[in-house]
Simulated assay, not measured.
Amino acid sequence: MLDAATLDSLAAAFAALGRLHREAPDETALRGFRDLIEDWPLAALEPEGKDSAAGPSNAGPSNAGPSNAGPSNAGPSNAGPSNAGLPSAGLPNSGSSSAGPSNPGPSNPAPAGAAAVGEAGTADASTRTRWHGGTDAGRAATGAGMEQIRESARAGETPEEIRRDHDLLYGDTAAARVAPYESVHRGVDGLVFGEATLEVRAAYQALSLQAPKLNQEPDDHIGLEFDFMAQLTLQVIDALYGDDAARAEKLMTHGTDFLRDHLLAWAPQMLDLATQHAQTHFMKGVVLLSIGALDSYAELLDLPFERP
């Protein structure tokens, strides 16, 4: 049975990580993300092998029922990019010419950067119940990622340093150390706009979504694929609160197919490379948190998650 509280936690994590893979945070978003890392919605395994003490200890749906957290009261429309400091970088509705959402609602991009952790989904960080799913390896990656974000703050890493690392890592303005596009990793020729790109585009279009710079930048950027899973998950929650179980199941089938056929088919290897090439604690943290998030969603859907 689908649980809205669990889905809310996953939507929040995937929304935040999608934004941070797409664009480095500015000072406001960086400070907010660091402040909110202790409220990370997915469980972490500390080095000594115990669950992280940070955040709520239970993961039941009691705090996220329709009576206090339905999409009509606290969906993405109340947590737009204006609270985040990061430009919108996700998937607008099909037909929108801008990178940001044209209309509020679960089908539009969840908020960016810090706001995504605290506000994406249907509950805020203070009331969201941390989901204790995922394998030990995945929760260990989450714990290591959280510690890297803490270390980034302790080391005083600046937005400029993180932006430079993001640029060098993903090739924002230069050659990428680790290409962030699925087609590069899975295509025979290792080029962008390959077969995988078109398949991903079709998956977006099935939910009336599209890449922000259609035909200019590849649709299969890891940040956009993470953002797509966040938006799909929010639509599932919307369907659950609307008592539309059939739509919720149909959406989850679409999400399962996308996760299995796309993200899990290339992102673990790409993220493993990124952990080796990232030079700042912050970007290492983002990558490790992403590994943990993929592991958590894969376990929920009973899909294999294989790290290199």
Rank of each mutant, 00 (worst) to 15 (best):
E119L: 15
P111K: 10
N108F: 09
G113I: 06
P109S: 07
A114V: 05
P106H: 12
A99D: 00
N108V: 08
T122W: 09
G100P: 01
N93I: 00
A116P: 05
G105Q: 11
G121N: 06
A115I: 04
N93E: 05
G100A: 03
N93M: 01
P109H: 04
G118Q: 10
G100H: 02
V117E: 00
G121R: 06
P101F: 14
E119C: 15
S98G: 06
N103L: 13
P106G: 11
S96A: 09
V117P: 00
G113M: 05
G121C: 08
A114T: 08
S98F: 02
A114D: 09
S107K: 12
S102H: 10
G121M: 07
G100M: 01
A114Y: 07
S102C: 08
P106I: 07
A120T: 14
S94D: 02
G105N: 09
N108C: 10
S107T: 12
A99Q: 01
N108Y: 11
A115P: 05
N93A: 02
G118Y: 06
A99W: 00
N108S: 15
G105L: 02
T122Q: 09
S107N: 11
A115E: 09
P101T: 07
G113F: 04
S107F: 13
G118R: 14
G100N: 02
P104V: 05
A99Y: 00
A115Y: 05
S96G: 07
S102V: 08
N103V: 15
P101E: 09
S96K: 06
A120N: 14
V117K: 01
S107D: 10
E119G: 13
G113A: 08
G113D: 02
A116G: 15
D124P: 15
G118N: 13
T122N: 10
D124W: 15
V117M: 03
T122A: 10
G118E: 08
G95Y: 03
S96E: 06
P111D: 12
A116C: 07
G113W: 01
S98K: 04
P111L: 11
A123W: 11
A116D: 07
P101Y: 11
G105F: 08
G121L: 06
A116F: 04
A112R: 10
A115Q: 05
A120C: 15
A99T: 00
A110L: 10
S102I: 08
A115C: 08
S97L: 02
N103Y: 13
D124V: 14
A116Y: 01
A123H: 09
S94H: 02
P101S: 13
P101R: 06
N108I: 06
G95K: 03
A114Q: 12
A120Y: 14
S107R: 12
G100F: 01
G100K: 02
A123C: 15
N103K: 11
T122Y: 12
A114F: 06
P111F: 13
P111V: 11
V117Q: 01
G100R: 01
G95D: 00
A123E: 10
D124K: 15
A115K: 02
